[in-house]
Amino acid sequence: MNARFLGISELSEVPSVAVVVDVMRAYTVAAWVFAQGAERIVLAGSLDEALALKARHPDWVALKDGPPAPGFDMVNSPGLLRSADLRGRTVVQKTTAGTVGALAVKEASLVLCAGFVVAEATARLLRTRVCDGVTFVVTGEGGRAEEDLACAQYIARRAAGDGTEPAEPAEFLRRAAGSRAAAELAEGVREGAHPDDVALCLELDRFPFAMVAAPEDSLMVLRPSAVPPTTGGVPA
Rank of each mutant, 00 (worst) to 15 (best):
V42M: 05
K106I: 12
C131I: 11
A50L: 13
A177N: 13
E141R: 15
K94P: 00
E147M: 08
P169K: 01
V33D: 00
Y154M: 09
S83Y: 13
D196H: 10
R144Y: 12
P78G: 10
T128R: 13
N76V: 07
G79W: 09
A3I: 03
A104D: 08
A62I: 04
A177P: 00
N2I: 14
R158H: 00
L200I: 08
L200S: 08
H194A: 11
E120A: 13
G163H: 05
G232R: 06
A176R: 02
L126C: 05
L51N: 02
P228Y: 00
A182F: 07
A55L: 09
G37R: 01
G79R: 09
V23H: 02
R87C: 11
D73Y: 09
G178R: 11
L47G: 14
S9Y: 12
C201M: 07
P70D: 07
E49H: 08
G45Q: 12
S16N: 14
E107L: 12
A38H: 00
L11H: 07
K94A: 11
F72S: 00
R175V: 15
G133V: 15
R144L: 14
C131T: 14
S16D: 15
E39M: 03
V134G: 03
V212R: 13
P235D: 07
A193H: 07
V118Y: 04
P235G: 06
V130W: 12
G37S: 03
D22R: 06
S83P: 04
M1R: 11
T28D: 10
Q93K: 07
T99H: 08
T90Y: 06
D148T: 07
P15N: 09
T90L: 10
L63F: 10
V21E: 02
K64V: 15
C201F: 06
A186C: 08
C201K: 04
A52H: 10
V91C: 05
G232V: 10
R158A: 10
E216C: 12
R82M: 14
N2M: 13
A104G: 03
M24K: 09
R4N: 10
V42R: 03
A102L: 14
A52F: 02
A186R: 15
D85Y: 13
A26L: 08
M220H: 07
A108F: 10
A35G: 12
L219Q: 14
A160F: 02
Q36D: 10
A3W: 01
P228T: 04
G71Q: 07
S83C: 13
A226D: 13
A26F: 08
T90F: 06
A181R: 01
T28N: 06
A26H: 04
R223A: 12
R87T: 15
G88P: 09
A26C: 12
F72C: 00
F207P: 01
A104I: 10
A104N: 03
L53H: 08
A55N: 03
A213M: 05
A145Q: 12
V118K: 01
V100Q: 15
L80A: 14
A102G: 15
A145P: 02
R25W: 06
T128S: 13
G79N: 11
R82K: 15
L63V: 13
P235N: 06
E39N: 05
A119G: 05
